[in-house]
Computed example of a mutant assay.
Amino acid sequence: MTTVRFTAENQVLRVVLDGPGAMNSITPDVVAGLNAALDAAERDTSLRAIVVTGVGRAFSVGMDIDFLGACFADPGGTFVPFIRGYHRLLDRLQDFPVPSIAAVNGLARAGGFELLLACDFVVAADEARVGDIHLGFGMVPGAGASMRAHRKLGDQRARALLLTPTWLDGPRMVQWGLAIAHAPLADLAAEVAKITDSLRGRSRPAIATVKALLNAAGDLPLAEGLRLEREMFSRFLDEVPDMAEGYRAFVEKREPQWGNV
């Protein structure tokens, strides 16, 4: 079985799917563990990033095979409620006020593919293998793959991943726009650190506001999006002192002080 471990250090919450024997497969306990990690991240206002990764040869292969059997034995009572709960978790991760980074160390498919799609950044090991594979089992995605892949990859590449048995390694993930960077597995943590290091010391409310605007951008016509940006800019200026503090810190040639966040 897979357990979820998480620790916070230097403004980064590291979340680890630890079930190498089960290829970090997903169960209700894993969803609960990931929600607990996000609960901890909400309480710790020092955090500026969340990193999600796996142990062993997989990032996550999706649903646990034994639990999947229980789901098919009771579709309405077990399968549908689980998928709804997993959907809520991934929506929460997508909308979380600090960026999330999927450090894809190995195989990611089905629900594991959907997990990385909900993250803001993906950094992949060269050796990683990522695909959807639902259709190969006569199944359809239920936790966001069709919508998020289309938005992140564009129409043709999303169709290739969801309709054909296409697998991507780390370099091809970058080529397709699914990952921001790739590196040999031995250097994956260092590549992820380039992103987390760049986020440390920044205003958390400003990060949250920019992320919310970017999340909204894909669903709004340009005029509506620009109106939303103006509204959020004005609200931020009125309610958060960080813009004025950032200006003063620059003029006074000192590090900004963001208060308790």
Rank of each mutant, 00 (worst) to 15 (best):
R5H: 13
F6I: 07
T7I: 12
T7D: 13
V16T: 14
P20Y: 03
M23C: 10
N24D: 03
S25R: 02
I26Y: 03
G33Q: 04
A36Y: 04
E42L: 10
T45H: 06
R48D: 05
V52M: 00
V61R: 12
C71I: 01
G76S: 15
F79N: 14
L90T: 13
D91H: 10
P97E: 09
P99C: 05
P99H: 04
S100I: 10
A102G: 06
A108V: 07
A110P: 02
L115W: 05
L115Q: 07
A118P: 04
F121L: 13
V123A: 11
V130I: 15
G131S: 15
H134W: 14
V140P: 02
P141E: 11
A143N: 07
M147H: 10
H150D: 10
K152A: 12
L153M: 09
L163Y: 10
T166M: 14
W167I: 14
D169A: 13
R172L: 13
M173P: 03
V174P: 00
Q175I: 00
W176E: 15
G177A: 08
L185C: 09
L185Y: 12
L185I: 12
A190N: 13
A193C: 08
D197R: 09
L199E: 10
L199T: 08
G201K: 01
P205S: 06
I207G: 03
K211R: 13
L213A: 04
A217W: 02
P221E: 04
F233S: 00
R235M: 00
R235N: 02
E239P: 03
V240E: 06
E245S: 02
G246C: 09
F250L: 12
F250T: 14
V251C: 11
K253G: 12
P256Q: 05
W258Y: 14
W258C: 01
N260L: 10
